[in-house]
């Protein structure tokens, strides 16, 4: 197992490098001149040239990349001109908020999705299956941002159960119950689509597994049906469900961008969108690399979980 983890960690290095190359190239293609963007259109050509030299923008592209990469390795993501603070500080401040939101939503959608999928498969064509299938279709068809807005109207404005937006109350907040009150609606809204996708896939995987010969063997041994479903079948189905969880984690992280906009959640998603609209390239560049790196790390965890579950992988 240790060897596998090490191998998987090493194999992440080229992926991370690839990510930095892709991000760097995309950002390098952005039309316009950052120095002009920073100094404004009234800047003199001399000042622009000086700033370009200062930023290293007069070097050839490959050299710029290595300078940027070297800085990244030392934790220097550059300085956001719009916010006038180091990019990394801004990212770290906001990433914890995103992590709380997306992490909660991910746990929710994994548990609910697998639960719904298994129940649905075990009762194929029964009432529970029909209800779940319909709810799931509804869930994967509703835009999360629209769902969030409707939740605000119903639960915050009409029923006043939850606060409309933000992460903490401005006065007297900051503790855990306060966070949970603020977190409930955005986390739910964010998890709905992924729950639907996971439920569909889990149902399919379970149906596929339940037809396998080893399920018949388990039944022929006299194993209780409950254990056949939740033990033998689910264990085998997890082999195809876990990679989907990995992909869905990316989707949850992506959906967080919309939800952060709707609920004014102070996360990296909003930061990125603002950065793009303000052409704050270093902020966007740094944010994208940072999140992608975290996602790569998460996928390593997924792969290790998969290898732990399926002994056939390690060989």
């Amino acid at each position: 197992m240790g060897g596998y983890i090490l191998k998987r960690l090493l194999s992440a290095i080229p992926v991370l490098l690839g990510i930095t190359v892709i991000v760097f190239l995309i950002m390098a293609m952005i039309p316009g001149d950052p120095a002009t963007a920073i100094l404004g259109s009234y800047a003199t050509p001399e000042n622009v040239a000086r700033l370009n030299r200062h930023l290293g923008l007069d070097e050839p592209l490959w050299k710029q990349y290595f300078i940027w990469l070297g800085n990244l390795m030392q934790g220097d993501f550059g300085r956001s001109f719009a916010l006038n603070r180091p990019v990394l500080d801004e990212i770290l401040d906001r990433f914890s908020a995103t992590l709380i939101l997306a992490g909660t939503a991910f746990v929710l959608c994994s548990l609910l999705g697998i639960l719904a999928g298994v129940v649905s498969a075990a009762r194929q064509y029964g009432l529970a299956d029909k209800v779940i299938t319909f709810v799931v279709i509804l869930g994967i068809s509703v835009p999360s941002f629209f769902l969030g807005m409707m939740m605000i109207l119903l639960f915050a404005v009409q029923l006043r159960w939850f606060p409309v937006s933000g992460m903490y109350s401005i006065w007297g907040g900051g503790d855990l119950p306060d966070l949970i009150r603020h977190l409930t609606m955005p986390a739910l809204a964010l998890s709905v689509v992924a729950t639907g996708v996971i439920a569909r896939l889990s149902r399919g995987a379970m149906l596929e597994v339940l037809r396998q010969d080893f399920i018949r063997t388990a039944r022929a041994k006299g194993v209780h049906e409950r254990r056949v479903i939740w033990g033998h079948a689910l264990r085998a189905a997890m082999v195809s469900i876990i990679p989907v969880l990995g992909i869905q984690a990316g989707f949850v992280l992506s959906g967080a961008v919309y939800i952060e906009m709707v609920f004014q959640w102070p996360g990296v998603g909003r930061m990125l969108v603002d950065g793009i609209l303000k052409r704050d390239i270093l902020l966007v560049q740094g944010g994208v690399v940072f999140i992608a790196a975290c996602y790569v790390g998460f996928n390593i965890i997924v792969d290790v979980a998969q290898a732990w579950l399926d002994p056939r992988i390690k060989t």
Partner: peptide, 17 residues
């Protein structure tokens, strides 16, 4: 490599360009 990005990052980056 492309799938190592949460898809919206890539979409945002493309729109940014």
């Amino acid at each position: 490599m492309l799938m190592a990005f949460p898809y919206i990052l890539l979409a945002l980056a493309i729109v940014a360009v």
